[in-house]
C-alpha cells in the first residue's frame, strides 16, 4: 500500500492510499476518507472526498516531478504541496534534512522585466526582508526582498538591464 508524507504550508500529513477494485481510500493522519477520482483533462480531475466535490488541477513544474513538488490549483487558490514516499521521508528526517531547506544561495528573477534599481553590493550583509533588486514589469515597480539573512557574494545585474525569468541576479555566500 502506498504511503506518503505530504507537506502543505509546513504542515505534514501521513497519507496511506488503499486501492482495491476501483475504490480508493485515503487514511490521512489516521482518519479514513473515501475518494473518488474522475479525470477531466490532462492534469485536471474531479475528486470526491467523502462526497465533497473538488475540482483540482495538480501540476508539476519541471524539477518538481523529481523533488515531489506539486502545485494544486483548487478553489481559486494555488497551493504548493510536497509529496514524498513515506519511507524516503523517514530516511530524510533521520538524516536531519528538512524537506524545504531552501538555503537561499541566490536570488533568481521570478519574472522577466527591467532592473531599475539594485539595492545591494558584494560583501553586504542582508537580513530577511531587506530589498535586493527592483524590477519593473507590466509597468509596475516590484521590490524583491531577501528571504533570509545572508551575505552578498556577487551582484550579476546592473540598473537598466533587461532580465529573463530564471536569471540569477544576486548570489549569496
Amino acid at each position: 500500500m502506498p504511503r506518503y508524507t505530504v507537506t502543505v504550508d509546513e504542515r505534514e500529513y501521513d497519507i496511506t492510499l488503499e486501492y482495491f477494485s476501483g475504490r480508493l481510500e485515503a487514511v490521512i493522519n489516521g482518519e479514513k476518507r473515501r475518494v473518488l477520482v474522475h479525470k477531466l483533462q490532462d492534469t485536471r480531475s474531479l475528486l470526491l472526498i467523502d462526497n465533497r466535490v473538488l475540482e483540482v488541477d495538480v501540476r508539476t513544474n519541471g524539477a518538481g516531478t523529481v523533488s515531489g513538488e506539486r502545485i494544486v490549483f483548487m478553489r481559486g487558490r494555488e497551493i504548493p504541496v510536497t509529496v514524498e514516499d513515506y519511507s524516503l521521508a523517514q530516511m530524510r528526517k533521520t538524516a536531519g534534512i528538512s524537506s524545504h531547506v531552501k538555503t537561499e544561495k541566490s536570488f533568481v528573477a521570478p519574472m522577466p522585466g527591467l532592473v531599475v534599481d539594485v539595492r545591494v553590493e558584494p560583501g553586504q550583509q542582508v537580513n530577511s526582508g531587506d530589498p535586493l533588486v527592483v524590477i519593473e514589469a507590466m509597468k509596475m515597480e516590484n521590490v524583491f526582498k531577501a528571504k533570509s539573512a545572508a551575505t552578498v557574494k556577487a551582484v550579476l545585474v546592473t540598473s537598466g538591464q533587461s532580465v529573463e525569468k530564471g536569471d540569477t541576479l544576486v548570489e549569496f555566500e
Binding site: Y13, I15, A26, V37, R77, V81
Partner: peptide
Amino acid sequence: YGNYDDELMESAAIAAAVEKFL
C-alpha cells in the same frame, strides 16, 4: 490573503497524493 483552512489543506494533500499514486 491565503488563510488556508484545515479542510483546504487536507484536501490539497489528498489531491497531490492521489495524483502521484495514479
